[in-house]
């Protein structure tokens, strides 16, 4: 068996634009290999340039086709594009058939496009972390736009969508649960609504339903999400979607919201890293002592309480430093 390429060498090669190295780095991220941290540190100084667009929505809405067409539109402006297609579908076996890429295969002969499929796998650190780091890899590679496709269900999916600067929520009319599906928490993070398959007789009703939902929102929005109609399989409406995306970006930049959002995300990321370290280095080891086990038994027998034991691991504010 060949020896593993050192992380530093892979990072150098990917920063020089080598796709093979980029592909391998993403695999290490997905595998949660021990050298991910050093890889990400090597990459980080070269990131922050890509504009990240999340494309999310229920299965069957036509997200992959929208992404495929959006690639075409964006490529026409000469920008290089990275795509992360997240497909959380996993049956009991843990295996998966990742098929989102099929609809985008025509771009596989274009060196300005890099498409990576990602399954759920049961990532210990979360699918969201793997997706986020993959976006950073593509960013560092010099892809100016990164599209992230996810099915808008589940917590980690929401987290991934939350990583994007602009989130487009794709729905299709006549799906029965089309607008229903929106209500499940993703409504709030959508910056643009896309009604795909807009040649469907019920398309206008879907648009009206979304308007109604927006009107019923309690918290006011500084940015009013536009509703874009597309027929992705007939190449219709995608230019409009890209214009709206750029308008949203301009709004974010002008209002200072972009910097603000990115800053908040980095803060969250720092906390997440620190949180994981705290858990791994302090919290989890502290449960492995004999003393802790004895205390736990006492809690079980109601001789003491969980708060008192927690105080011994992390002192309550006012009780002094750690």
């Amino acid at each position: 068996m060949a020896t593993e390429t050192p992380a530093g060498e892979l990072v150098d090669r990917l920063l020089a634009g080598n796709r093979r190295a980029a592909g391998q780095v993403i695999s290490r991220i997905e595998d949660e290999s021990p050298d991910v941290e050093s890889i990400m540190r090597g990459i980080f100084p070269h990131t922050g340039n890509a504009y990240v667009v999340g494309i999310t929505g229920p299965p069957g809405a036509g997200k992959s086709t929208v992404v495929d067409e959006l690639i075409r539109v964006i490529r026409a402006s000469g920008k290089r594009i990275g795509v992360v297609a997240v497909d959380p579908n996993s049956p009991f076996s843990g295996g998966a058939i990742l098929g989102d890429r099929i609809r985008m295969m025509r771009h596989s002969s274009d060196t300005g496009v890099f498409i990576r499929s990602m399954g759920a796998r049961g990532h210990l650190g979360g699918l969201a972390l793997a997706a986020r780091n993959t976006i950073l890899v593509l960013d560092a590679m010099g892809f100016e736009v990164v599209l992230v496709e996810t099915v808008g269900v589940g917590q980690s999916e929401l987290e991934i969508a939350g990583t994007a600067d602009t989130v487009a929520l794709v729905v299709a009319p006549g799906m029965g649960d089309g607008v229903q599906a929106i209500k499940a928490g993703i409504m709030e993070i959508a910056d643009i609504f896309v009604v795909n398959k807009a040649d469907h007789p019920q398309a206008n009703k879907t648009v009206a339903d979304i308007r109604d939902l927006l009107r019923m929102e309690i918290a006011p929005r500084a940015w009013t999400p536009p509703i874009v109609k597309t027929v992705a399989i007939r190449n219709e409406g995608l230019e409009d979607l890209w214009i709206r995306t750029r308008q949203h970006r301009q709004y974010l930049e002008r209002s200072g919201e972009l910097e603000n959002r990115r800053k908040l995300r980095l803060e969250a990321e720092i906390l997440e890293i620190a949180d994981r370290r705290l858990r791994e280095q302090v919290l989890e080891p502290s449960t492995e002592t004999e003393e802790f086990q004895q205390l736990l038994d006492r809690v079980v027998h109601r001789e003491t309480d969980p708060y008192a034991v927690a105080d011994r691991i992390v002192p309550r504010p006012g009780l002094g430093g750690v």
Binding site: T65, I97, G99, I102, R103, I233, R234
Partner: peptide, 10 residues
């Protein structure tokens, strides 16, 4: 008439 692209179902 346009060109057909496969919606693949495995």
């Amino acid at each position: 008439l346009g060109t057909y692209r496969e919606p693949a179902f495995v």
